[in-house]
Design a binder for these strands. Structure first.
Lengths: 586, 586
DNA sequence: CACTAGGGATAGGGTTGG
DNA sequence: TCCAACCCTATCCCTAGT
C-alpha cells in the first residue's frame, strides 16, 4: 500500500507482525537473498535498478525490491502493490537503526545474529573478494544485552543495543559449496554454488582386483609404463600417478607382510624392504619362532599358494576377499587354486567376489589380549602370487636391495644347541599331528644352481625379526621351521633349493634368458592350535615381548628356552642360480 | 672330501641330510651369500677365483667356495677340507637339476620358492643394473604341482616341473636396508629395552577452548588446511592430524546432535560446512522441529550466548568447562559475556581460562528413557557459536556455498496453514511454560539493511535437516520456533533483522568497509521437560525419522501433522547489509 | 610429455585408556 | 560398552627432477 516512509528515522522497531507480514509475501530465501544482495552491493549508494537486474529473488521491479529491503531494514511499510517503477531515494539509510519489538532476549539475539551472519556470509558472490580465496570472511558484531529481555513491550533497547555487550566475531566460510558432497566422482555435476576447493577426490581404496590387475599389468608392461598400462591393461579408474603410487605401496607391503610382528611393533622403523627381506628369510630359514603353536593339528592349516607371511592372516586368495582382511589376525587359510581368477581388467573394484579361494579351517578366534600386533593388511604381492596367474610381481632390481640390506646386518644364528629347535616348534605340542613329515623342499630349477637355502639350525640374519610372536592368529600358529639333515623331530622342515638358469618358462614378455625358474613346490604348514597354545613353551617365549617395540635395528632375538642361539655379525650373502639377471643372458 | 661329481647328472635329489650337512658347516647367511654371489656372477662361465675374491661369505678358498656351491646346487659332497686351491670345472652345470627328497608339498614349495626368490633377488649387487635403482627385481617362476607331492622318492618330476603349473612372478625389493631405524629422536635415551616406544603420547582430552579454537579456525581457514590452522589460528598443542581427528569428531557430533539425524545419516554426504550452515539456518529459521519438548518449564534453560543448536546440550561456556561435557546431553546454560576471550595467537592452548561466562540455570536432569536418541557429547559447534566471543564462525564463502546449496535445492516452506506450527513446537506441550512469549528479535545493525530473515512460516532450505530429533537432551528441549506476524499461539516466534552497513567493528584483519555489524541480541530458550516428554506430540513427530538416512541433498522434510508445507524450487539468495565485501569498500 | 621420487596432508581404520 | 585420543597406513596431491 502506501508506505509510511520511516527511512529517515533514526530508530525504529520491528515487530513480529512486521516480520510476519514480510514472510507472508516473500519466503525466507527471498528475504535472505534481498539482504544478501543489498549487502553485497559494491557501492555505498545502492542502485536498485542494477540490483534488480541481477537479483536472484525473482523480483523484477526495482521499487518492489527496494521496498522489501526497506521494510526489512527499517520496517518500511510493505506496499501491497508496486506501481512506481523507480525506487525511492535512499538518503539517510546509514543513519537508521531498527530494533526488534518487543525486545529480544539476549540469547535469541545472539543466536539469531550468528545464524544470520552465516547466512549472509553465505551469500557473498563468488567474484567478490580475491577470486582465488578459498574462504570468505566477514566480521560479525553481536550485541548481547546484559539482562534478561523484559517482557515489557515498552522496554526500548538502547540504540545499538547499548544495554548489552558487543561481541564481534568474524565469520568465514569456505567458498566451495558442497565440498565432498559427491559420493564418488561423477556426482560433481550437481555442483553447488561455488567452485571452491578442488575437493580432493574421494579416497578410493584399492581393491584386490585392482591390485591384481595392476600387478599383472606391471608384469606385462613393466613398472615404468603406467601410461601404457592405463591404456591397455588396467581397467580401473586410476591415474598413472596412482598406479605408480600403488605400485610402490605394493612393493612395500610385500616387505611388511612378514611374519614377526615381534620385530617391529612400531612398524615404521624398519623399511618395508627390510621387513620383506626379513619375512622372506624367516620363511626360508624356517625360523623356529613360528614353531610356537605347533602341537595341535599341525596339518590343519595349509596355505598352499604362497609365503603366507606367518603372522599375518594367511589370507591368500586370488579372489576379492574384499580385502577386508584388515582385522589384525584373522586366520584364514585358503587353498589357492592355481591360476586364480585374475579378473580381467573390466571388472571394477568392490565388485564381484569371484573368489575361487576357499577358506579352510578358519580360526576366527581373536584373542583379545594377544600380545603381538599384526602389521598390516593382506599383502597384495602374496595375493597376487597366490592368484598368480602369470602375474609378475616385481622387477629384479627391487629384490636386489633386500639381500643387500640383509648382508650388511648382523646375522643371528641360532644353532641347535642341546635341543633341536625343531622340536619345540613342530612336534612339541600336545597332539601329534598328521603323519605328514612337514618337510618341504623346493626342487631345483632346470639347468643350474640349486642350493639348500635354509636351515637345519636356524639362521637368523639380524634383519630378521627376533623370533617372537609369530601368531597374529591366536589359536593358529604359522609354522615354518626348516630342518634338513637333522630330522630331529622329523617335522617341520624346509629345504629350499633353487637353481636352474637356462630353462625359462616362456613368459609373456620376459626375456627368457634372464629368467630363473624355480620349479618347485613350496609347502607351508600352519598348525591350528586348539585353544591350548598357551601351554606351548615356544609360544610363550615368543609372546613374552608383546609390545616389543624397540627392536628397531638392533638384532634382538628372543630365544626359545630350549634353543641356544648365536648371534653372528657376519655379513651374509646369499647366492643363487647363475645368470639371473646376468647381462650375458641377454 | 672327495667329491662325487654329480655335476654332469641331469637330475639329483637333495635331502634333509644334505641341507643339514651344509648348515652344520656354514650358517644360513653364508649359504645364501654363496647362492647369491654365484647367481649374480655376470658371466655364464663362473670364475670361482674371482668370486672368492669378492665374496662376503668369508670363504677365501675358491675350491671351497665352489664346493659349497656345488653342494647346494647339485648335492655335491661337501669336502671336509679343501686342499686344492683351484676350483673344478663347471661343465654341464646348466644341465643339472636337483630335486628335493623327500618330495616337498606344493604349498611348502611355493612358499619356499617365493622366499628364496626374494632372498636371491635381494642379493643382486648394487652395481648391476641401473646404479640408482631403488629396487631390485627378478622374475620368479614357481611350479605348482597339480597334485600333492608324493612322498615317494622315486617320484621324479619332469624337467621343468611339467607336473604342475608354472607361475612366474617377478620379485622386487626395495634396496634400502635399515632405514629410519631410529626411534623418535629425543626420547630414545629413556628407551626401555630397545630404545623404547615413543610411549603413546599422554592422552589429552580436548578442552572446550580448544574446540572453540578449532572450530573458529576451521571456519576461517577451511577444513583442509590443518597445517595453516596450526600455524595461524590454533594455539593449542595439537598436531594437524589431531586437529583433523577432532574435527571429524566434532562433525559427527554436530551431525548427530542435529535434529533429524534424518537428514544426512550417512554423514559424509554433506560437508561439515553444510552441516554447520544447516545448523545455523535451523536455528535462524527457527525450525519447528525443535519445538518438540516444549512444555515443561519453558523458561528453565536459557542459553544466552548463541544459537545453541537445539538438541545439543546447551553447553555454552567460554570457559574451560574442562570440556568434559562429554556426556551426551547435559543441559548446561552459561551466559556468555561479550568479547569472549578470543585468545590472541600468542597464548598457548590449554592455557588461561579467562572465562567470563557463567553457568546459569543448569538443569542436570538426564532422563534415561528419552525417546530420542542422544547422539553424542555436547556439540562443539554449538558451543562455539554459543561462546561466540570472537570466535570465527565461517568464511563467507563457506556460508555462501551453503546458501548456494540451499538455493539450488528445494526450499521447503512450511506455512502456517491451519495450525500454526509454532503451536506444537513451543506452547503445545502439556504444561504451559513461563509467561515469556518466546518471541525473539534481532535488532538491526547500525546503518543499513535489516530485514527479518526468518520466519513466520518456517522456511527450510533443503540443506536444512528435516525437522527431527532435536533433543540430545532428553528432558530438555531446545526450542526455537519462529513466528512473526502470526502470533498464532503467541509463542515461539523469532524475528531476525539484520542490517547495518557502515559501522564496522574494527576486527583484526578484516577490512572494516567490508564488515557488517549485526548488533543484536539473540535469545535461545530451552525448555526442560520433566521427564514426560514422551507425551509431547512434537517430539514424537520429529523423532519419527530417527534413522532417516536418505536425506542427502534432497530436501526431505518432516512435517508436523498440523503444519502444511510448501516446497519451493526457487533459487534463493539472501541479502544483507550493503558493502559487505564490496570491492568498493576496499 | 611421461614418469619417478619425495614431501605433505589428510582419510580411515585399528587400538586402547577411561 | 562405548567413545575419545592415539597411532599408523593408504591415498591423493603437488613439485621437482629426469
Amino acid at each position: 500500500m502506501d508506505e509510511s516512509n520511516n527511512t529517515k528515522t533514526k530508530k525504529g522497531l520491528i515487530s513480529e507482525d512486521d516480520v510476519a507480514l514480510v514472510l507472508r509475501r516473500y519466503n525466507a530465501p527471498t528475504v535472505l537473498a534481498v539482504l544478501r544482495e543489498v549487502a553485497q552491493f559494491p557501492d555505498v549508494k545502492i542502485d536498485w535498478n542494477a540490483l534488480v537486474k541481477k537479483t536472484s529473488t525473482g523480483i523484477s521491479n526495482a521499487r518492489e525490491y527496494q521496498m522489501l529491503w526497506r521494510h526489512l531494514a527499517y520496517c518500511d511499510m510493505l506496499g501491497e502493490k508496486v506501481e512506481e517503477a523507480e525506487p525511492l531515494d535512499d538518503d539517510s539509510d546509514l543513519e537508521y537503526e531498527l530494533e526488534a519489538f518487543p525486545p529480544v532476549s539476549d540469547e535469541a539475539s545472539v543466536e539469531a545474529a550468528a545464524c544470520v551472519k552465516v547466512m549472509l556470509a553465505s551469500g557473498l558472490p563468488d567474484d567478490s573478494g580475491p577470486p582465488n580465496r578459498a574462504t570468505v570472511e566477514a566480521p560479525l558484531t553481536i550485541n548481547i544485552p546484559n539482562g534478561q529481555a523484559t517482557r515489557d513491550p515498552s522496554d526500548n533497547p538502547q540504540p545499538s543495543c547499548s544495554k548489552g555487550t558487543n561481541i564481534t566475531v568474524s565469520v568465514s566460510v569456505q567458498k566451495q559449496p558442497l565440498p565432498t558432497v559427491t559420493t564418488a566422482e561423477g556426482l560433481d555435476g550437481s555442483g553447488s554454488a561455488a567452485g571452491g576447493l578442488p575437493a580432493r577426490r574421494k579416497r578410493k581404496p584399492w581393491t584386490l582386483e585392482e591390485d591384481m590387475e595392476l600387478i599383472a599389468a606391471v608384469q606385462k608392461c613393466g613398472e615404468r609404463n603406467w601410461a601404457n598400462i592405463l591404456k591397455g591393461d588396467f581397467k580401473g579408474e586410476r591415474t598413472a600417478s596412482q598406479l605408480s603410487q600403488r605400485w610402490s605401496i605394493i612393493r612395500k607391503r610385500q616387505a611388511n607382510s612378514n611374519p614377526g610382528g615381534v620385530s617391529n611393533p612400531t612398524g615404521s622403523q624398519l623399511s618395508e624392504t627390510q621387513l620383506a627381506t626379513r619375512n622372506a628369510l624367516s620363511l626360508a630359514l624356517n625360523m623356529p619362532e613360528y614353531s610356537s603353536l605347533s602341537a595341535v593339528g599341525a596339518t590343519n592349516l595349509v596355505t598352499p599358494a604362497v609365503p603366507a607371511a606367518s603372522t599375518e592372516a594367511a589370507v591368500v586368495s586370488g579372489a576379492p576377499l574384499e580385502a577386508n582382511t584388515k582385522s589384525t589376525a584373522s586366520n584364514i587359510v585358503s587353498h589357492q587354486n592355481q591360476q586364480a581368477p585374475l579378473q580381467t581388467a573390466t571388472s571394477l573394484p568392490k565388485a564381484t567376489s569371484n573368489t575361487t579361494a576357499t577358506k579352510s579351517r578358519v580360526t576366527t578366534k581373536k584373542p583379545t589380549s594377544f600380545p603381538v600386533k599384526s602389521p598390516v593388511g593382506p599383502n597384495p604381492m602374496i595375493q597376487a602370487a597366490a592368484v598368480a596367474a602369470g602375474a609378475r610381481i616385481a622387477t629384479p632390481s627391487t629384490a636386489k636391495s633386500h639381500l643387500k640390506a640383509a648382508q650388511s646386518k648382523n646375522a643371528v644364528h641360532i644353532r641347535p644347541g642341546g635341543n633341536p629347535l625343531i622340536k619345540p616348534s613342530v612336534p612339541g605340542g600336545t597332539k601329534p599331528v598328521a603323519p605328514r613329515p612337514n618337510v618341504h623342499y623346493i626342487r631345483t630349477g632346470l639347468t643350474s644352481a640349486s642350493p639348500p637355502a635354509s636351515t637345519y639350525s636356524t639362521v637368523v640374519p639380524s634383519i630378521l625379526p627376533p623370533p617372537a610372536v609369530t601368531a597374529q592368529v591366536p589359536s593358529v600358529s604359522a609354522h615354518t621351521s626348516a630342518s634338513c639333515g637333522t630330522p630331529a623331530e622329523g617335522k617341520s622342515t624346509n629345504v629350499i633349493t633353487t637353481g636352474g638358469v637356462g630353462s625359462s618358462s616362456k613368459e609373456e614378455e620376459v626375456k627368457p634368458a634372464e629368467e630363473m625358474n624355480v620349479d618347485c613346490a613350496a609347502d607351508v604348514v600352519q598348525d591350528s592350535g586348539q585353544g591350548d597354545q598357551a601351554a606351548l613353551p615356544d609360544t610363550e617365549m615368543v609372546t613374552e615381548n608383546p609390545t616389543a617395540e624397540n627392536l628397531g635395528n638392533s638384532s634382538k632375538v628372543v630365544a626359545d628356552e630350549n634353543v641356544p642361539m648365536d648371534v653372528d655379525n657376519n655379513q651374509i650373502e646369499s647366492e643363487t642360480a647363475k645368470k639371473m639377471n646376468s647381462p650375458a643372458a641377454n
